[in-house]
Amino acid sequence: MFLEVKNLTKKYSNKTVLHSLSFGVDQNKILVVLGPSGCGKSTLLSCLNGFITVDEGTVFLDGQNITKLYPEERDITTVFQSYSLFPHMDVMQNLMYGLKFKKISRNDARKKALKMLHLLQMDEFSNTKIQDLSGGQQQRIALGRSLIVEPKLLLLDEPFSNLDEKLRLTMRHELRQIQKELNMTMVFVTHDQQEAFSIGDQILVMDQGQIQQIDTGQGLYSTPKNHFVLKFIGDSNLLDNGEYIRPEDIVIKSDSNGDGRIEQMDFQGSTINYLIKYKERVFHVTCLNRIEPLKVGTHVDVQYKVSKLEEK
């Protein structure tokens, strides 16, 4: 493994916030750390970039034990949630900042920065003040500033959470492209599962300082390991004995003799969510918006596929 974390433990005055975490990330892959707020994901990130000291465990990067190194000594850069671009420097100065500490001439640094601007599709902004950039542009520069030093590992701490919905989608797409182009290994922290699905090669689901499951997005969704993952990832209709039905696994058809009845209809655009009553239980159903929406009170025929948790 390129990044290898073993038994990582962090305590804050007797309260354990990370419980002996072990996981790895392959080179040129993106690991997304996903979890509700307060689950310890930012603490985990701070252990990786060195801004907090760990109580137990080791972190190896490319075979080197970096557990005790200062942040500035680690070959890791971080894109922070608040962008943290230096307000007293312009775009180019921000981009070139990390190169000051590499043995590289000013001229070469400039060339690299211009190349990075091009990659970020922001060629015309080289002399712009940081304050004059939009949120999305600031985020791009922050990303570029961290990428330009060619770190072995790039950490991203909820980098898109301050952007609006549309921009967020674009940025996810761009990040993946840049990652492929530069062959970068990344750890990306988020609480947004859509973001996790679209970015992550692997997703590490965390709760209360513990790893709940590490898998691909598809794997998490189709074979959740426990109740937490099941409830956290996607929606589901819980049955007994660890059985559940995903809302899209229920197919309903208008049928005056059907056992089901539409109780509520929630129009979402591309999909329609229904609440149906079927055999004395209430089920969430998600349908694609292909046919005329069914009205409340309509009787429906119900077909479904039951899934089962591997462990209860």
Binding site: F51, P71, E72, I76, F86, K100
Partner: peptide, 21 residues
């Protein structure tokens, strides 16, 4: 903003550079 200082350090700035820059 603490993350400004942390950013600089994350980019490789040592103590003197953080203070000066």
């Amino acid at each position: 903003e603490p993350s400004l200082i942390n950013s600089a350090r994350s980019l490789g700035a040592r103590t003197d550079a953080v203070i000066k820059d």
